[in-house]
Design a protein around this nucleic acid. Structure first.
Length: 422
RNA sequence: GGAGAGGUGGCUGAGUGGUUUAAAGUACCCGCUUGGAAAGCGGGCGUAGGGAAACCUACCGGGGGUUCGAAUCCCCCCCUCUCCGCCA
């Protein structure tokens, strides 16, 4: 959510942000709602003030006296007015609340203009795409792939997009997760093992609700399976004020991630490219507003280092305004090269939300100088998502003999130098 | 899952319908005092919304209700503790 003061004081800034994100929002309607709400609020508060004053007066009067009875009669009228005014302002407040939540975060000055994904800027490319393609093929076409990742039985037991990982497949997943968490911990992120179901209040604070309700799995108890560890992690400090000296707070968490992905079909979703359940390690930072852009570069560096150590070619995209999410101020995507599919796969998305998430979740720090609470800036990024990294490694490292060479850094975790498909 | 007891500011804790503007203590900050400190004394000290400001309004786990008026009474929900049941 945006600062209501920003909207009132410089609506043109907000207007420009909406234009850069290529969204369609009627800002004037929001402004009109806001001013009408403030007008009505003043009226309600004046009436309540009357009630309070009468209350003090009546406390001094003798109960049952003519003066007291007269006052009761008089205040019955005021009470009815208060009720009417409160009834009137309620729907207005709800409308304003919804309208404020329809306003996107302001893109940072360094975010390039553009509307479509094609207009994202390739910020950097690391490693050579040609060098890895000797025996590459799409991972789902590799002989014996189904022995490692069983989609058929997953579909029988649960549904499409819920595969079983078997033998070296399961071992590979576990090795990647262990590697990610060890590296992230070394980089200063405290490991967290969070709940993988969250309540509606948490899903609302991070923005999954109400808009993206259909993208989450919901239980009979009105709990939601997490689409990413970002949700429980960010909500850890919801409605809290932390000390300034505690910042920056850096945490990482592995969770399975659950996404309904309603309406996704086609070649983009073959094999491990898109699943309803997948494993991911998420990186989270709560930082002082003055350092959030430095922290974003550091966060991206932490995610990139994982790909470098795995010797995967990748590129860094700086998202243009139109492809930037609703809540982000600035975002980098990391994409690995999958040599078999001959395409880039997104494995991490590193974003600075500035105070947008923090305002919605009410996460603040106490300013040391003023003693007053201020909103923190939050950032998050994957570090990393397992299935697509696995896909790229299987494709890129496929040998002439049909085995996959395990990157040196992963061998201690995997326990052997080659993965076999039988 | 069942029964009971609870939930009040950073912390302790009073408050069973109206001078409560949530007492008091404690912690913290400023001042006086002191060679310096402690003690003592005086003042300040929650969060949010509205307002140019003076100031006003809301908030006692959450949401509804009763009433002229609710921290206080009623209903629903959440959480904590104790006991019972079940259980990896």
């Amino acid at each position: 959510m945006l600062d209501p003061k920003l909207l009132r004081d410089s609506p043109d800034t907000v207007r420009a942000a909406i234009a850069r994100k290529h969204l369609d929002v009627d800002l004037d309607a929001v402004l009109a709602l806001d001013s009408e709400w403030r007008k009505q609020l003043t009226e309600v508060e004046a009436l309540r003030g009357k009630q309070k004053a009468a209350n003090t007066e009546m406390a001094a009067l003798k109960k049952g006296s003519p003066e007291f009875s007269a006052k009761v009669t008089e205040m019955k009228g005021v009470s009815a007015q208060v009720k009417a005014a409160e009834e009137a302002i309620k729907p207005l407040e709800e409308k304003l609340h919804a309208a404020m939540h329809s306003l996107p975060n302001i893109p940072h000055a360094t975010v390039p203009n553009g509307k479509t994904p094609e207009e994202n800027v390739v910020h950097a490319t690391h490693g050579s795409v040609e060098a890895v393609s000797a025996h590459a093929m799409p991972h789902w076409e590799i002989a014996g792939f189904n022995n490692l990742v069983d989609f058929g039985r997953g579909a029988k037991v649960t549904g499409a997009g819920f595969p079983f990982y078997i033998g070296d497949g399961a071992r590979f997943v576990r090795a990647l997760l262990q590697f990610f968490i060890e590296e992230d911990t070394k980089a200063g992120y405290v490991e967290i093992n969070p709940p993988i179901f969250v309540n509606a209040a948490s899903a609302t604070a991070t923005g999954q609700l109400p808009d993206k309700e259909g993208q989450m799995y919901e239980t009979a108890d009105k709990l939601y399976a997490v689409p990413t560890a970002e949700v429980p992690l960010t909500n850890f400090f919801r409605d809290e004020i932390v000390e300034q000296d505690a910042l920056p707070i850096k945490r990482c968490a592995y969770t399975p991630c659950f996404r309904r992905e309603a309406g996704s079909y086609g070649k983009d979703v073959r094999g491990l490219n898109r699943l309803h359940q997948f494993d991911k390690v998420e990186l989270l930072k709560w930082v002082h507003p003055s350092s959030s852009y430095d922290e974003l570069e550091a966060l991206r560096g932490d995610a990139e280092r994982l790909l470098q150590k795995l010797e995967l070619p990748y590129r860094v995209l700086l998202m243009c305004g139109g492809d930037l999410g609703f809540a982000q101020s600035k975002k980098y995507d990391l994409e690995v090269w999958a040599a078999g599919q001959k395409r880039w796969l997104e494995v991490s998305s590193c974003s600075n939300f500035e105070s947008f998430q923090a305002r919605r979740a009410q996460i603040r720090f106490r300013n040391k100088e003023s003693g007053k609470p201020e909103l923190v800036h939050t950032l998050n990024g994957s570090g990393l998502a397992v299935p697509r990294v696995m896909a790229a490694l299987l494709e890129n490292n496929l040998q002439a003999d049909g085995r996959v060479k395990i990157p040196a850094v992963l061998v201690p975790y995997f326990g052997k130098e080659y993965l076999a498909f039988k």
